[in-house]
């Protein structure tokens, strides 16, 4: 099941919540949807799930357009909305049965599916309670259970781990990873390590536009452009000599001494070149002890901040 979003635009009044975005998600791919509040994540998800029609553009799920065949698409999608709305006065089991019936799960399979969802989502203890009596974490699990009850080929989860405790978060991430092997998953979140832990691909949107698209690694590379190394050298006598000979290396673009440590430097390599080997050789030739050589990675947080603040 592939999802193809093409030139999608949604206007609320004059404000463009989603501004001409296009992307594709392939079967078995987990797409992490990142963006600050109000970036248009939820709106995009609402359009894909056929809750709202776009102002312009189209979404095709497995070749079917949301504008023409919403009923067909809705059957294939499991959706967990942002605020996880639920009928508070309905018991968990009854609610799951209701959703299963709405999703056209065959009568003979409904009980099996409910039992399985209760197991997968860890609802066994609370299954006879009314949803209104459950804690936030358990409600979130009910939300996940209802999204997956008909074994959909596409899962769209708007902030699936909010309100869960760390153990549950790990479980849910594991579950999403497992599901993602066969299914297409789009999940949105504010929690950056979560995207890294679960997603194959990350899409960052800001003010309705896509600002980055790629794996966590490729985003890092893109943001960094050049290699940055942290180097510490011991048993050298003169700092200036070290700096000048580091600067003399062919691959090095800049040497930046770290203030409070005399022999620690941040070294920027020239574009697409690595200076690790030459630094090592330089130290060997001069009989310096290379006690640290660490590549500095840009954190996803930094990329996120850089792309989404103006």
């Amino acid at each position: 099941m592939s999802i193809v979003v093409s030139n999608l635009t949604k206007k609320y009044g004059t404000q463009r919540a989603v501004d001409n975005i296009s992307f594709e998600v392939n079967t078995g791919e987990i797409l992490g949807f990142l963006g600050p509040n109000g970036a248009g994540k939820t709106t995009t998800m609402k359009i894909i799930t056929c809750f709202m029609a776009p102002t312009d553009g189209d979404v095709k799920v497995n070749g079917e357009s949301v504008l023409e065949n919403p009923e067909l698409i809705k059957k294939k999608i499991g959706y967990l909305p942002e605020s996880n709305p639920l009928y508070l006065d309905v018991p968990v089991l009854e609610y799951l049965e209701y959703v299963a019936e709405l999703q056209n799960v065959p009568k003979s399979k409904i009980q099996n599916r409910i039992v399985e969802m209760v197991k997968v989502c860890g609802l066994d203890v609370e299954k006879h309670k009314k949803i209104g009596e459950l804690s936030k974490g358990y409600r979130q699990r009910v939300g996940l259970a209802q999204a997956m009850i008909h074994d959909p080929e596409i899962l769209i989860l708007d902030e699936p781990t909010t309100g869960l405790d760390p153990n549950q978060i790990v479980e849910i991430r594991k579950l999403i990873r497992e599901l993602g092997r066969e299914k297409t998953v789009i999940l949105s979140t504010h929690i950056l390590p979560e995207v890294e832990a679960t997603s194959d691909r990350i899409l960052i949107i800001n003010q309705g536009k896509i600002v980055a698209d790629g794996t966590a690694e490729s985003l890092r590379k893109q943001a960094q452009g050049q290699e940055v190394l942290k180097v510490q050298i011991d048993e050298a006598d003169n700092r200036d000599i070290v700096i000048s000979s580091l600067q003399g290396l062919e691959t090095v673009a800049a040497v930046d001494p770290v203030d409070d440590m005399e022999f620690t430097f941040l070294i920027n390599s020239k574009d697409n070149l690595s200076s690790r080997k030459s630094i090592f050789k330089l130290c060997v030739d001069n009989n310096w002890v290379l006690s640290e050589l660490t590549p500095i990675e840009t954190k996803l947080e930094d990329i996120f901040r850089e792309l989404t603040t103006n």
Binding site: P85, L86, Y87, Q103, N104
Partner: peptide, 11 residues
């Protein structure tokens, strides 16, 4: 309560 969204995204 927002459950309308849940209902209308069912088939």
């Amino acid at each position: 309560s927002g459950t309308i969204e849940l209902l209308l995204t069912k088939p």
